[in-house]
Amino acid sequence: MEKQYLLDGLPVQVTFADGLVRIVNDQPFKQAVTGQPEGNTTALVAKIKSDYKASFGNGLAIGDDSFVMEILGHLYFDYLLLRYKSLLRFICVFGLYDRFCRSCRVIDCGERGKDPNRWLWNKLVPFQKLLARRLGNVRLSRFTEG
């Protein structure tokens, strides 16, 4: 199932599967999240979880804070990849840089068993507010390839 949400009037594309949601990490999404990182991400997570429960009959077994942290973490990693492109292309040899960039195009958030990194996002939850502040200071022009 696919659904589009509006965050600050900007479209966000989400695909639902059993135990997994995929968020398209495009320019409108980046703009919406960097505008109000914590508020917009928390609102998006609430909408996604509500629609998931309505569609699948049971809740998505991802804690709200872990879900928010995963979204913010992916966005910040994407920003760093683009911001320090020249350096990271040099460091990440054998196509690793390009693989990282491809993996940032869609943010896969899954339940334990579907998302092998769920434990990592759970552990990083204490840094959620710090990361939200950092993303709030990102100039959108630095969040583009080129």
Rank of each mutant, 00 (worst) to 15 (best):
L6Y: 05
L6R: 08
L6A: 05
L6K: 06
L7A: 01
L7P: 00
D8L: 00
G9T: 03
G9D: 01
P11A: 03
P11H: 01
V12I: 14
Q13L: 06
Q13W: 01
Q13I: 00
Q13F: 06
V14A: 06
V14F: 03
V14H: 00
T15W: 08
T15P: 02
T15N: 07
T15G: 04
F16V: 00
F16A: 05
A17I: 00
A17E: 05
A17P: 00
G19K: 09
L20S: 01
R22P: 01
R22C: 07
R22A: 04
R22T: 05
V24Q: 06
V24H: 01
V24C: 04
D26T: 12
D26C: 07
D26P: 05
D26L: 04
D26V: 05
D26H: 10
Q27P: 02
Q27K: 10
P28K: 07
F29L: 08
F29D: 03
F29R: 00
F29G: 02
K30P: 10
Q31I: 13
V33N: 02
V33D: 02
V33R: 01
V33Y: 09
V33Q: 02
V33P: 04
T34H: 10
G35C: 12
G35A: 13
G35K: 13
Q36R: 12
Q36Y: 14
Q36D: 14
Q36W: 14
P37K: 03
P37N: 06
E38S: 07
E38A: 15
E38V: 03
E38C: 05
G39D: 12
G39N: 12
G39K: 14
N40V: 09
N40A: 13
N40P: 06
N40M: 11
T41H: 13
T41V: 12
T42K: 12
T42H: 11
A43W: 09
A43N: 10
L44V: 12
L44H: 12
L44Q: 04
L44C: 13
L44W: 14
V45D: 08
A46S: 14
K47D: 11
I48K: 05
I48L: 11
I48F: 07
I48M: 15
I48G: 05
I48R: 06
K49D: 13
S50P: 03
S50A: 14
S50Q: 15
D51Q: 06
D51F: 11
D51C: 13
D51E: 14
Y52R: 05
Y52F: 14
Y52G: 13
K53W: 08
K53T: 07
A54S: 13
A54F: 10
A54H: 10
S55W: 10
S55D: 06
F56H: 14
F56Y: 15
F56T: 08
N58I: 07
N58E: 04
N58F: 10
L60E: 07
L60F: 12
A61P: 08
I62P: 03
I62W: 04
G63Y: 07
G63S: 15
G63C: 04
G63T: 06
D64Y: 10
D64Q: 10
D64K: 07
D65A: 15
D65E: 15
D65G: 11
D65W: 09
D65K: 15
F67P: 04
